[in-house]
Structure formats: C-alpha cells, structure tokens
Simulated assay, not measured.
Amino acid sequence: MKRILVAGLLLLVAASAKAALPDDYRVVMLTENFPPFNMAADGKNYAADRNVSGINADIVREMFKRADIDYSLTLRFPWERIYNQVLEKPDQGLFSTTYTPEREPLFKWVGPLASTGWVLLAPPGSPLRLSSLDQARQYRIGAYQDDAVSQHLESNGFEPINSLRDQANIGKLLKGHIDLWATTDPVGPYLAKQEGVNGLVTALRFNDAQLFLALNKQTPDDVVARLQKALDEMRGDGSIDAIMRRYL
C-alpha cells in the first residue's frame, strides 16, 4: 500500500509540474545557417519549421517532443539580430550557441548539444603552422561578427576583420584579403566544401567548445529542467549518435 501511495504521489507531482505551464505556452526557437548543425534546406537566410535541418535542429525537435513542450522554429539572419532578440524577449531560445563563461549569466542553458573546436584556417598549401594564439597577432584574421570565436579574439586584444556571413571569409582567404580565417570546426571546412573549396590548412586549433540551446533568462525553470532531462535521455539511448550519423 505504501508503494502505491508513493507512486501516486510521484504521478501527481509530475502532473502538477506540467500543469504549471499555460495550455498555450510556446517557446520561440531561433537559429541561423551554421551547417552541419543547423541550416536552411534551400541554403537561404530564412526558413521555418521543417525547412530547417541539421544535427542540432533534429536534436532540438526531438528534445521538445519528449519534453512535451510546444515550440516554433525559425532560421534567420544575421546572428547578431537573433542573439539580441533572445536576450530581450521572454520564452525565446537560440541554438547552436557556444557556451562561454562570459555568456553564462546571460541565458538559461540546455546542453551540450554538440562539441566543436575553434581553428585558424590558412589557404590550401600554406606552410603556416602556429603553436599559440599569441603568434597569430601579426596576421590579418577574418571572423564572423558577434560569433563566439570573434568575441573570444576581441576579448584577447585582437581586431578581427568581421563579416556578416562566415562564408564571406572563404573568398577573402583565397584572394589574400585575410591571412587566416577564425572559425569553428567542422563548420568552416563544411562551408568551404559547399563552395567547392577543399584542403584548407589548420594553422592552429586553439579552443574546444560546446554548443548549447540558450534560453531567455525569464524562461521557467521547469521548462529548462524538462528539456535537459529529455536531452540526457537521448544521449543515453543513442538517439543523438543516430542523428549525427545522418549528417557526418
């Protein structure tokens, strides 16, 4: 009898936790073109719902499904705009967002969704190899405006030549307008391959990072907990590995 009472109590607690959210509650999810993690099916700078694909897009969809939380998903451009929007508006979220200590107090976090590395890429055939980020100060470095990689460089005294699109750095690098491209691996090489460019040289790998879902600070803690629980279950049952195999 005691076990039955305990089980019943747990069910009531779980039911009340879900009931804490209004019936019309919805999280507005925003993302950008950041292949292979999130991207528009047609490669354009706007897409919605099923027209958004990628490793993390598929992970986020399944996560919300398991957590039984309604959402909308929109891919927009540029990153700076949607980043600031999620900072300001309740019940909005942003992925794939690189977790950094500087960003930690700005959002509520669910993750990690995936792991990446930060790299400085040189043109194909370049002999340039660096052993530290400090050695890169003498070079012109292209980066993606307001991306975590660019923010990291700026916080360390660099003045990267920022572009509104990360893809723009591919042409700048090949034309000699920049010496190095600061980007994320595997995103940078993936973008280059889509442009028909192979063989970019990794002059330096200077940081390993993790990609998260960043939620506005006013997001209810219950929503954060349910999403994190769903993600942990996906990692444990092999769902995330299966999703990654579809793209890599």
Rank of each mutant, 00 (worst) to 15 (best):
I55C: 08
F37P: 02
D68L: 12
D24E: 12
N33E: 01
Y71A: 06
T74R: 14
E62H: 06
D91R: 15
Y83M: 06
S53W: 03
E32H: 07
F64R: 02
L75V: 10
Y25G: 03
I69T: 12
L73R: 02
L21D: 02
S72G: 12
R50L: 07
V27G: 00
S72N: 09
F34V: 03
A47L: 03
G54P: 02
D42I: 09
L87C: 05
D68R: 11
R76N: 06
Y71Q: 07
N84E: 11
K89F: 03
D23R: 15
D49M: 14
E62R: 14
D58Q: 13
R81K: 13
A48Q: 06
N45Q: 10
A20N: 11
P78T: 15
K65F: 11
Y71G: 04
R81T: 06
M29V: 14
A15V: 10
R66K: 13
K44E: 05
A17F: 12
V52I: 14
S53R: 13
S72R: 10
M39A: 09
A48M: 04
A17V: 15
F37K: 02
S16Y: 15
D70Q: 11
D23T: 15
A41E: 13
P22A: 08
Q85V: 06
I82L: 12
D42F: 07
I59C: 04
R76P: 00
D68I: 09
K65C: 05
F64C: 03
K65E: 14
P78N: 15
E62T: 13
D49F: 09
N51E: 04
D23H: 15
E62A: 12
A48C: 00
P35D: 07
A47Q: 02
D58T: 03
S53E: 09
A67D: 13
K65L: 13
D49K: 05
D91I: 03
R26N: 06
R76W: 04
E62I: 08
A14Q: 11
R50Y: 05
K65I: 13
D49G: 10
D42T: 11
G43K: 08
E80V: 07
G43W: 07
V28W: 08
D91L: 07
D23Q: 15
Y25K: 07
P90E: 04
K18H: 14
K89I: 10
R50H: 11
I82M: 12
I69P: 12
G54L: 01
D70C: 10
R26H: 06
E80S: 12
W79G: 00
R76C: 01
V86S: 02
M39P: 01
I82F: 03
L30T: 03
N56M: 05
Q85K: 08
G54C: 02
R26W: 01
K18R: 15
K18W: 15
N33H: 03
V13Y: 07
R81Q: 08
L21S: 05
R26G: 01
L87W: 09
L30V: 04
L30Y: 13
Y83W: 12
R26F: 01
M63I: 07
K44M: 06
D42Y: 07
Y71L: 10
A57E: 00
K44S: 13
A48L: 01
F64P: 02
L73A: 07
E88N: 09
S53K: 13
D70N: 12
N84T: 09
V52E: 00
D49L: 09
P22L: 08
E80I: 08
